[in-house]
Design a protein around this nucleic acid. Structure first.
Lengths: 141, 141
DNA sequence: CTTGACCCTGAACCTTGATAAAGGGTCTAG
DNA sequence: CTAGACCCTTTATCAAGGTTCAGGGTCAAG
């Protein structure tokens, strides 16, 4: 194993994890990072683990997890029994959410494409199919 | 044509347009709806046009336009020369934005799918590929 | 006339994920 | 010892798109 590397300052951790200092304190307040040890002066005192945790958070964010979900994942990751099952379930839920959002956006895309296709791009706004589509009344009941 | 139907109250308009009352006042403040006439009492006095305008806003929102963009569309829709061209351009920009978002979400989806695929769903969190993928260090420099 | 539903304004508050400022203490190189 | 870099807390601010509240006034039915 490697040297324990004690007492990194928040600035060092920030640089090494690629995260602004303020964001680290923010994550701590929000319960995503454990409260670190403190020096006598009050300075936060980190070790390498903190950097790994920050990278975990960064990757999870890249995968579309909210901070709330990440807090949940972090809690589960220390649950030795059942943790894995629950984690996989969270990932599946996240996947389902993302797929739903993709489907929704594709529906929107189709709508926009159709409007653009039939719009001549000139003439009177009264005949613009984009505006007409937006303004038209609901089909009469 | 139909009867002019003057003096709808805000509550009636809200119901008919399917929008909360507060949202109507909010849109008015934000310049998405024109200021309506007022009764002697100060009550807002709407006509059918307001309902159409609210539906316009609702549809545009469904197509992914922001309120800012909608304000812009509404301004363009009364520009008789060049309006249509500009409107089509806005729609194309919106389409490009939507397509970029879809591409991004599809990338995220692939990442999640791969993690879920190799996760057994049981066992020790230390061997969970989802957690490992999130926690692993960057490749050493 | 009273009651209850409805409307008015202005201001504060909500969510998410930070970011910044104010005012002050600490640490380290020279 | 001092300058400058760094750290501390608390509080405020931002974007977006509203929602809710407090403290009133109005309208219509009975």
């Amino acid at each position: 194993m490697n040297t324990p590397t004690l007492s990194l300052t928040i600035g060092t951790v920030a640089k090494r994890a690629g995260v602004p200092i303020d964001t680290i304190r923010f994550y701590e307040r929000e319960g995503l990072l454990p409260e670190p040890l403190r020096r006598a002066s009050g300075y936060r005192s980190y070790n390498e683990t903190a950097i790994k945790q920050l990278r975990f958070i960064r990757r999870a964010k890249e995968l579309g997890f909210t901070l709330e979900e990440i807090r949940d994942l972090l809690a589960l990751s220390s649950d030795r029994r059942g943790g894995v099952k629950a984690i996989r379930k969270r990932a599946e839920q996240r996947l389902a959410g993302i797929e739903a959002r993709i489907a929704e956006l594709m529906r929107i895309r189709t709508g926009l494409q159709q409007l653009i296709e039939v719009c001549p791009g000139h003439g009177d706004p009264e005949h613009c199919p984009i505006l007409r589509a937006l303004a038209d009344e609901e089909p009469q009941a």
